[in-house]
Simulated assay, not measured.
Amino acid sequence: MVFRDSCVRRAGRISRAHAAAAIALLAAQSWSGTAHASVTPKPKPSPKPPALNIAIDNGHTSVRQGDRLTYTIKIANTGAAATPVLRVFQALVPGLELISSTPAGTVTAKNIEWNKSLAAGEKAEFNVTAEVGELEAQLQRLTVVACAADKSSERSIVCAAHSDRVPAAGGPVQSQVPGTSASEWYIAVGGLGLLVATGVFVGWRLRRRKPARAPMAP
């Protein structure tokens, strides 16, 4: 009887030990899951970039050394909210010498730039006057790029480019009548020359056909 009571007490102690171990294990797992959730924050959604339009133009299709050009940059906020502070800039390409800008911009080694925030629906314009200097011998087109970037991240949002043809150095300059192509001009000149030659030939034939005048009687 004493032996049985001892076994019962011992079994009770073992059961209680197992229960305590199970409770401790569950608590550790619960704490581990809570700690893991606290150190893994949810990723924040990327902010949507502002809705912008940009364009650049200088009113030319071809340029030569010595030409003075005015580039006009137009930018518009087409969204429903104001933009952050923007960095609007125009690239200063080799061979293009900066003269002035309106409004006055900040000149760096590669760009001329302005800081501007646009309200919803607002438009802005920037003008850059430059002179075409000495260009590379093999350059066929002079291309200038303008962009708008988020000033806080330096990430470009929109860009636009304007490209002008660069005629070959020393090439002939062809004068054309406005509204006519080169081939039409050559055809017109050739036709005029043919008409003149035909008129000379006809006049010469008529002179040869005139009868000789009879001598006058004394």
Score class of each variant (00 low, 15 high):
Asp67Arg: 14
Gly79Gln: 02
Leu52Cys: 11
Ala82Ser: 10
Ala160Ile: 12
Thr61Pro: 04
Asn115Pro: 04
Tyr71Glu: 09
Thr34Trp: 15
Gly199Thr: 05
Ala137Arg: 05
Met216Pro: 10
Gly171Tyr: 10
Pro49Thr: 03
Ala188Pro: 00
Val107His: 07
Val8Arg: 09
Glu122Asn: 03
Ala20Tyr: 13
Ala214Tyr: 00
Leu25Thr: 01
Ile157Trp: 15
Ala124Ile: 04
Thr198Ala: 15
Leu92Ile: 10
Ile75Arg: 09
Ala24Asn: 08
Ser175Phe: 15
Ala104Gly: 09
Ala119Ile: 01
Leu118Tyr: 11
Leu25Val: 06
Met216Ile: 07
Ala148Ser: 08
Tyr71Ser: 07
Leu98Phe: 12
Ser183Val: 08
Pro50Val: 10
Thr34Gln: 12
Ala120Val: 14
Ala104Cys: 06
Lys210Arg: 01
Ala11Gly: 10
Thr61Val: 08
Arg205Gln: 09
Gln90Glu: 15
Val8Ser: 06
Ala22Arg: 06
Leu206Ile: 07
Ala161Thr: 12
Tyr186Asn: 11
Ala91Ser: 08
Cys147Leu: 11
Arg141Glu: 07
Ala21Cys: 07
Gln65Ser: 07
Val189Glu: 13
Ile112Asp: 06
Val2Ala: 13
Ala19Thr: 01
Ser100Ile: 12
Ser153Ile: 05
Gln29Thr: 15
Ser15Asn: 04
Glu125Leu: 06
Asp5Ser: 08
Ala197Phe: 06
Asp57His: 01
Leu98Arg: 03
Lys210Ile: 03
Gly179Cys: 04
Ile14Leu: 13
Leu86Pro: 07
Lys116Gln: 08
Asp67Val: 08
Glu184Phe: 01
Ala82Arg: 05
Val39Ser: 11
Ile14Val: 14
Lys44Tyr: 00
Thr106Ser: 15
Ala217Gly: 00
Leu96Tyr: 13
Pro49Gln: 04
Val145Ile: 10
Lys151Glu: 04
Val93Gly: 06
Lys110Asn: 12
Leu86Thr: 05
Arg4Tyr: 13
Val173Asp: 03
Ala35Gln: 01
Thr198Phe: 13
Val132Thr: 02
Leu194Pro: 11
Gly12Asp: 14
Gly79Glu: 04
Ala51His: 07
Glu184Met: 06
Leu206Lys: 13
Ala217Ser: 00
Phe89Glu: 14
His60Gln: 03
Val166Thr: 00
Thr180Tyr: 15
Leu135Arg: 11
Tyr186Phe: 14
Asn53Asp: 12
Thr129Ala: 15
Thr61Lys: 07
Ala20Arg: 10
Arg64Ile: 13
Thr143Asn: 14
Thr180Ser: 07
Met1Asp: 04
Gly59Phe: 05
Gly171Phe: 12
Pro167His: 00
Thr78His: 14
Thr143Glu: 15
Ala76Cys: 13
Arg205Trp: 11
